[in-house]
Nucleic acid binder design. Structure first.
Lengths: 343, 343
DNA sequence: CTGTTAGCGCATTCAG
DNA sequence: CTGAATGCGCTAACAG
């Protein structure tokens, strides 16, 4: 591997000049710069990341932290988001570490990632409200931003979407179709998104004069399995709901499977809705009415925010984006016969 | 951040001794070692990764390379595999970079990852037979292993599963159910897995006296969309196949969606099969008969292999594991009325 | 505009 | 068994 020394020799300059050229600093004469550039090219020189990190105190690496492992796979949405983040970061000259949080206790691997200074900052996905990871990051004094996780007096930047707005979009839609007996399936309530969606559901019912029935709320964990169980439980009741609102697509997909298994026809007998608009959402039968997250904006903003934090720019920013309703085939009027719908 | 110096002072030894303790080297008296350990703990000292990498020439980082971006999301299986890899690596003291290959030309981000020596080695997923990434790695002389990608005279280690065996499992199953008119949907033929599965399909037909009909082969790209299109195309023919064998689960799931949309009932009218056994495979309706990859073994072995390569242990190893047939509800006898099945 | 001097934190020689 | 010296490749201050 060629070093700055080698380049310097070949270009007949000191290696300091090489460093300047490499880092695009001014104060290098045009001719010299070109000579150095040529030498760099000829030797196919690349700066050594470790040396640079040691000397400059910057790794140009970002870490990515997920909720406990058993929930990562439960969320296709996070995979889609990771890819976008990597693209954004890559174009800014950064690389991305895949670091998970192990369930239960803290993750030693994650801790090392931070303590050994392998990253300049982190992006944390949907932290629990009282998250060990967040506490760790705050304690270690590492720049970080949260994606899909916020808390009232958050001492960090975050980008999230408006869960209240998203849920109201869904609930307006189904009540508009005449539904009144609406069941709700939560995600992991440790996460703010799950809580907000539940809260909005409750408030919406109240403000629309619909009685809140605890038996119509099922506590899931975002996974296909829990969605399956939710549907089974909710439709086993004597007074079956006419709509089930799931807190994410994956659970809704599990619910659709349960409906097939039980011979319940969707959406004629029951309407179902999801949240996230993952790729699969349009490939279920029926295709899923859901709430689309503005995933490209989220990824872009998350990257902007973390780089700002790393540069030490002062204020924490709290960005909340608007989601969008996507109506597909899993929702239908309460009384399909009455095509004009109830007034 | 505490350094070895700080620890050394506190433990009243030279920092060399600290280094020995940190690296678990012998030749440190028990008492001294304990004193150092205590100081390390008190200062919550962690070795600086950059310094260590610079000095030792090892980053303890591994990179992960995916097929072109448009195909990453098309493969839930890779997500599941990534998580397992991260777990294995983490327990061995390594961290994992998420590095993709951009479509078309080479990925500058990936190139930097390697050229700047941010990783000790790489794991490459399903490289194309003539893969730019593989060529790059070979040229740069970085240790790497392939997962689900092999070539005849491969100058690298790999772990893969036996596609021939997997496909025969599927084909034996469906022919055992009496099917003769069997369509096939390929993955991206740039990848060896896609090719081998296709080849096995052809050979199997021949050896079983079934005529090969080119119109029954659809060229997909692993994605839900292409599976949808495949089903639509194949079932639009005059002589519809009685079984469609998809080269992965995702395409099969797309196919199932198409069947619903066209009002084709599965598996009564058409049987379908997948490959990989991703989590969704058991949540479709009907649930998917498929081939399960031994994903835990693959992840473990991939990690063993790359660490061997990094240690410079000589020979390339080629590991091929056996897949397993998982029969669910998407396959049925050719003539459902005849429940004993054709003899 | 360019070169010199120092040191980032650690590991690898080698002496003692 | 322990310590002192040297350098990994680079950047940041200064000096010329």
């Amino acid at each position: 591997m060629a070093t700055q020394q080698d380049v310097a020799r070949r270009a007949r300059v000191s290696y300091m000049t090489v460093s300047r050229v490499v880092n695009n600093q001014p104060n290098v004469r045009q001719g010299t710069r070109e000579r150095v550039l040529k030498a760099i090219h000829e030797l196919s020189y690349h700066p050594n990341a470790a040396a640079r990190a040691l000397s400059a105190g910057q790794t140009k690496n970002i870490g990515m932290i997920f909720p406990p492992e058993e929930y990562i796979l439960a969320r296709a949405y996070f995979t889609e988001l990771s890819v976008k983040l990597e693209q954004n970061l890559s174009s800014r000259g950064y690389h991305l570490f895949l670091g998970s949080i192990r369930s239960g206790s803290e993750d030693p691997g994650l801790h090392r990632l931070i303590a050994e200074r392998k990253v300049d900052g982190l992006i944390i996905f949907a932290p629990a409200v009282d998250d060990a990871g967040v506490r760790l990051l705050a304690a270690e004094n590492v720049p970080f931003v949260a994606v899909h996780g916020r808390s009232r007096g958050a001492q960090y930047s975050y980008v999230d979407t408006d869960n209240g707005a998203g849920m109201r979009l869904v609930l307006d839609h189904v009540t508009g179709l005449g539904h009144r007996r609406i069941a709700f399936v939560c995600g992991r309530l440790q996460e703010i998104n799950a809580r907000e969606r539940l809260v909005t559901y409750r408030r919406f019912l109240r403000s629309h004069g619909i009685e809140y029935d605890e038996r119509l709320v099922f506590h899931g964990d975002w996974s296909l399995e829990s969605g399956y169980d939710a549907f089974t439980a909710l439709c086993g009741k004597d007074r079956r709901p006419t709509t089930i609102v799931f807190s994410n697509d994956q659970m809704a997909l599990g619910g659709i499977k349960a409906a097939h298994d039980r011979g319940v026809s969707l959406p004629q007998e029951v309407s179902v809705t999801g949240y996230d608009d993952i790729t699969y959402a349009s490939f279920s039968s029926p295709s899923l009415t859901t709430v689309r997250q503005p995933i490209d904006d989220i990824a872009r903003i998350a990257v902007d925010l973390i780089l700002e934090r790393i540069r030490g720019e002062a204020p924490f920013k709290r960005i909340v984006l608007a989601p969008q309703l996507i109506v597909r085939s899993s929702t239908a009027p309460r009384y399909p016969a009455d095509l004009t719908g109830p007034s």
